[in-house]
Amino acid sequence: MNANLVGPGPSGETPVVFGGSAAAGRLLVPEVATIIDIRDETASGDVKTFKVRMDRPEAEEAWSHLPGQCAMVSVFGVGEAMISITSSPTRGWPLELSIKRVGRVTGALHDSQAGDKIGLRGPYGNRFPTEEWKGKNLLFVAGGIGLAPVRCLIDYCLAHRDQFGHVDIVYGARSPGDLCFKDCIFNRWSRQKDTTVSLTVDKGDETWTGPTALVPMFLEELGPSPKNAVAITCGPPIMIKFTLQSLAKLGFTDDQIVTTLELKMQCGVGKCGRCNIGDKYVCVDGPVFTLSQIKELPNEF
């Protein structure tokens, strides 16, 4: 192996283990996990859902995440990427990660098969403040792959159905083929009591009988009430931008709007100094922010 990996610094030629800290479970060393199933979410295959399990049962037991949190996923030889966890903690293992093919790590994941080994560490980041939402109506607004982090939250809230008021799910994608989690949006969620699912696409096809509208416009047409409500939104930046305007038109205040952010991350634990917006690190202080929190941050995003 390359002898150059120590660089100008103390050479590790005769390593002495001290302090007992060289044991497993070190911060930046992932757990080994296995991909047990891969499912295409979209017609074009650019989004896939990976079901993964950790190889060590103790590690699975020690793991506990809450909606909004993320996992650092490794493909060895390629790298690591921060991925939002798509499955609700109420559903246990295997963990589900829905991933769009965008770069090197996600590309390598898309190229892998069931049985392949990956690395997993986390969960990282804050979470959606669900305990603050007790008794409130929930409005979920998502676009495309933006449903991934929200799906975990929706399942979590529906598992604790009695704690919340009406649940309204507004979801859109570019085309019917780009709608993710078809089982959830067409079957599972709308069967829950007091839950509505409203779908739209930018451009329909011969199979599509539903509305064709951009998510923000569609949302304004639906006209959900801001009264005693929280809006959770996630999607591509351009959709978010206009959705926020639509929500404001509908009367939602900045405190009533929650979203999740993403930036390039290398450590996920607030050390590498990369994912900051002002003095906040998205990895440890986020990814979940209310709109009023975001407005306090420098406009660099």
Partner: peptide, 15 residues
Amino acid sequence: QWEPLWMGRSTGASE
């Protein structure tokens, strides 16, 4: 560039 990675990100005489 990362693809192809002409020069590794590690430092040392080789890279």
